[in-house]
Nucleic acid binder design. Structure first.
Length: 278
DNA sequence: AGTGTATCCTGCAGGC
DNA sequence: TGCCTGCAGGATACAC
């Protein structure tokens, strides 16, 4: 579910509320969402204060006193909901996994219907090690058209697979990969290293454009995504290709096609994104 | 190195 | 109404 724009929207929603609050109580209702043991998780957070709210790729990162970081990967249906009042205050979780009570009467919920998401507390060295396994932030300075071109040139993967690989770029998921490739006029299955400088530059621009637009509209809600206050995102109507099988391409009118590879759907305009040869 | 497949799990939409 | 199938924004492990 949540990709970079959704994680960023959640981070922005938590930031005015969490920093400065003390963690009074941590209750793990669904131990399978915790990496490591639940009691260790509880112990590493209890009594600490939240110092900051950040994001790395699709992951939320809550910094706590003592150098620990709570890293949250939302999987497909994970949510972080903050209620300024006690549990039972809105927003209500539908599938509560973890409940964190804070000073000032706040409650932070981890909510996840499918429980593909994971929560993990990392100390500073392990956080740095983990972060190094991820590629650059696509909206950051290190992600340049030249760097993208060089990365693509080193890979025989299809473009969509390359974009979904978090080790290459951190934060792009299926929706925004499909959207960026549509806007750049590149077939999702095209081999990465076949992309020349001009097309890499176009893809670079469209990846960033698509992510920025989605942040501006507070994320894409297809069904499950909610921000920290429980609200849906508004970006779904802006999707040009994803989920639009059979509908006319908004550029040339050709029906959008759906293909499946690597067990995931991709959507494309067969005219604007010509099939790679072979 | 890269791909297909399976796995984790639940909910919903559509067909009958 | 109920049953069945397919599908879903992610990540990872496996065999080939």
């Amino acid at each position: 579910m949540p990709e970079l724009p959704e994680a960023e929207t959640i981070a922005r929603g938590l930031r005015p509320h969490l920093p400065g609050r003390r963690i009074l109580e941590v209750e793990v209702l669904r131990p399978d969402v915790i990496v490591g043991s639940a009691p260790a998780f509880v112990a590493s957070l209890s009594g600490r204060s939240v110092e900051g709210v950040g994001r790395r790729g699709k992951n939320l990162v809550l910094e706590v006193t003592g150098g620990g970081r709570l890293v949250v990967n939302l999987g497909m249906t994970g949510r972080l909901l903050f209620a300024s009042g006690p549990p039972s205050t809105k927003p209500d979780p539908t599938h509560p996994g973890v409940r964190i009570r804070t000073s000032g009467g706040g409650t932070l919920w981890y909510d996840d219907a499918r429980r593909f998401g994971r929560l993990q507390v990392m100390d500073t060295p392990s956080y740095r090690g983990w972060s190094r396994t991820l590629g650059p932030e696509p909206l950051g300075r290190r992600f340049t058209a030249e760097a993208l071109h060089a990365g693509l040139a080193a890979s025989r993967s299809p473009l969509r697979s390359w974009l979904l690989d978090q080790r290459k770029v951190a934060g792009v998921g299926n929706i925004y990969a499909v959207e960026a490739l549509f806007l750049a006029g590149l077939h999702p299955r095209r081999q990465a290293r076949s992309v020349d400088r001009t097309d890499a530059s176009r893809l670079h621009r469209e990846v960033r454009r698509v992510l920025r637009q989605a942040i501006r509209y507070r994320g894409t809600t297809l069904r499950d995504y909610r921000d920290a206050s429980g609200s849906s995102g508004e970006n779904a109507p802006r999707l040009a290709a994803y989920g639009r099988e059979g509908l006319p391409c908004n550029r040339c009118g050709t029906p959008i096609e759906r293909i499946v590879f690597s067990n995931r759907s991709a959507f494309l305009c067969p005219r604007c994104q010509p099939e790679p040869a072979g």
